[in-house]
Design a binder for these strands. Structure first.
Lengths: 199, 199, 199, 199
DNA sequence: GATGAATGAGCCTTCATTCAT
DNA sequence: AATGAATGAAGGCTCATTCAT
């Protein structure tokens, strides 16, 4: 039943999706939808929750599937690949999370924000691990790290949309593009050799 | 009158924004809105057009305000600063462009796509200039460049949202964060020293 | 529910009748009207269809109720009586057919035109039968017959309105008036003794 | 200015005709229309009045153009010809009178009723004259005459519409059709030889 | 005298939501 | 447990009508 909801919300958008359409697509009657999920709002919330969990699980599984002792960059790369694979294989769910949920009011946006923070934390962990592996003490303020994570996540989101819309772009390619783009900058930063306005 | 529309669309979303509310906020009557802008769709389109033009103008002005002979990285930095300053000073317009317009159907999404492409082209130009300045011949396929631009723009979009929501983050900081994050990666790429899965 | 619609359309006219008023008169809510009949246009169409069928059925039943071997003039008289009885007993329906449907655009006018043609054909049949009964070969061109039928039907329509508005006029009287008016002229025509400008 | 109104009302119908359209067609501004004719209702009333006067004048002129000493049937024929000529040459005005005015509420219908009665009186006069000419004392009750006049007028209205819609039918033909149809019946009636149910 | 500019009121239509069964 | 049937509330859009100039 949630499948139908995610599909409809993802394609039509929150407002344009009608409960009639969702119920019909699910093959059940409308009151039944209301019996299990009490309102359109709660239904959408449940969709977000499910898709968020699925996304996090996919990324986690990807990042941890290999040897947990792999270097951090490999783990990041594995996580990104899993991310792009998931968004490519589940475009409606991705649309719900990335597009719809953030556009229709606080209650939903807050959930996605939490999801983002979870992923940001994960990424931050990886960066920290990388720093330790290289015996470099990153002297980055917390807010700097937060900004970097935001940038990386935003880049990933953007690439996910691009990969979904551009035929022939694989998840691996998207992940490689992002690693290319980001890893060197991160490395430099950890060495204290960031770009500076007054260099 | 467009001010009121942008504000309402930016906060409520396209569908949730009612023409009544827009008219009231504008201090005029609803038929007047229909007299000037013939439908909700055209009104929204006009908002997008105005905000897109304003954003492009702001970025262009920022990038070109200094000495046009400045090195490319400085010009990119100036452009980014202007971008973040604009999105920070005009959050509703930014919401219309970044959030609402892309979530509510083809006619609107197409306009934003055009805007993005304009900005991507602008960034690409700067990267090319940087390459020439460094006497390096970037051997990047077109699709690679497209992916990088998507990543950079996505990162910028994400940081704009982050800066808007996080008190105390200035436009300069956001721009610096993004330069730090991206510039080294770009430079490495142009040297053919990208990150590789099998390195 | 169609009752309420016919009544409202017949009295107010198509445009002036509001769906609110129809729903209220029917004792149901407006969305219910839209559930069964999907739009104002379809609702009006359904009214026309129903009233047209009822009118034709009434006339047919009247004309055929007696001995089918009756002479043609008696059958015409019976049909006319039934017609005037029906229009008198159902003034709103008659208004829908005769007044409203013909004044509000092609889709509706076409339906009434079909109805008229059905009745005209019916009348024409009777005239032909009368001619055979009298062993007279009517030498009337098709267009002449069409004109006569138009005249007769128009006279009947006019008398229906007159009878509805003039207290004390019964269906029988209206039918007799029309028979008096028309039958002799038809008889003369069939004898080739029509009125002529240059007689 | 009334020309534009008649044309618009005749083609679009009373409700569907917008004051904007009328003003534009007349080449003046809307407030000017309101200056001369204070409301849509009065404007429509004025249209009806003008068209009614024009129609009556045309019929009168036609009936009286020849020798006033002509026999009554010739004068009726002349009047009918003039009538059909007028309706054919002025279809919008005829639509206003016959279709629109009678379909949109009492105030307008009353005017048309008055017009009809004027014409009925005119016809009645002719019938009376015919009776005197033939030295026959018509023993028809007033209501019978009224009914006959209604029938004749209705037949004429119907033929007018038919002639307007059927290519190739001239005013003379329509008038002849009606004379053929009606005159013999009227003659018989005046001789006391009407059709009777129990003959 | 003539009009550009503006509005109050209303209508068709839709949709989330709920009973009665 | 499941639904067919029904509705209150709201939204986009139009139009006759009027000021201020």
């Amino acid at each position: 039943m949630l499948d139908a909801a995610v599909r409809t919300f993802g394609r039509r958008g929150y407002q344009a999706a009608s409960m009639d359409e969702i119920a019909e697509l699910a093959g059940v009657s409308k009151p039944l939808v209301y019996l299990y999920l009490n309102s359109k709002e709660e239904l959408f919330t449940a969709c977000i929750r499910r898709e968020a969990a699925a996304l996090v699980a996919a990324v986690r599984a990807g990042a941890e599937e290999g040897d947990p002792a792999l270097p951090a960059d490999r783990r990041l790369w594995a996580g990104l690949t899993a991310f792009f694979r998931h968004t490519a294989g589940n475009p409606d769910g991705w649309s719900v999370l990335h597009r719809q949920a953030r556009t229709h009011g606080e209650p939903f946006a807050a959930q996605v924000k939490a999801l983002r923070e979870e992923i940001v934390a994960f990424v931050t962990t990886l960066i920290g691990a990388a720093a330790r592996e290289a015996h470099r003490a990153p002297e980055l303020a917390d807010r700097d790290v937060a900004g970097l994570a935001q940038a990386l996540v935003g880049a990933a989101e953007s690439l996910a949309g691009w990969a979904n819309e551009t035929p022939g772009v694989t998840a691996k390619e998207a992940a490689a593009t992002l690693m290319n783009f980001a890893w060197a900058g991160l490395g430099n930063l950890m060495d204290g050799r960031g770009w500076s306005e007054n260099r």
